[in-house]
């Protein structure tokens, strides 16, 4: 399976606000081919320790396109963890920064 996995992400609305935001991820391999059939779970963690992380599932809405909702429970800097299990069973995790989540 893909030795290099390219992950593009989009959060709607942007800049992210406090609440359950729509997260779209696009997975592709080094050749730019969409990676379908993966299991993708989301996790949001506050930059400060001791805060409750939030979790979200995604579903594949198009070839290599995964969508799900993820909660940001307070304003500030967050880190989004993307837990991916590829069709071949290989698991990996990516850490994406979501800076400056705004209060409503």
């Amino acid at each position: 399976m893909a030795a290099t996995l390219i992950i593009e992400h989009e959060i709607d609305p942007w800049p992210a606000r406090v609440g359950r935001e729509l997260v779209t991820l696009k997975l592709s391999d080094a050749a730019g081919r969409a990676v379908s059939g993966a299991r993708v779970k989301l996790e949001s963690d506050m930059a400060h320790p001791g805060m409750k992380p939030e979790f979200g599932d995604t579903s594949e809405v198009g070839p290599g396109r995964y969508q799900g909702r993820l909660a940001f429970t307070m304003a500030g800097d967050w880190v989004m963890l993307v837990h991916i299990t590829l069709p071949g069973g290989q698991s990996l995790e990516r850490q994406l920064e979501v800076k400056g989540v705004r209060a409503n």
């Binding site: 506050m46 400060h48 307070m74 304003a75 800076k99 209060a103």
Partner: peptide, 11 residues
């Protein structure tokens, strides 16, 4: 006040 923890200045 609403808590907000940023590691970024003027972000």
């Amino acid at each position: 006040q609403p808590m907000e923890m940023r590691a970024t200045f003027m972000g």
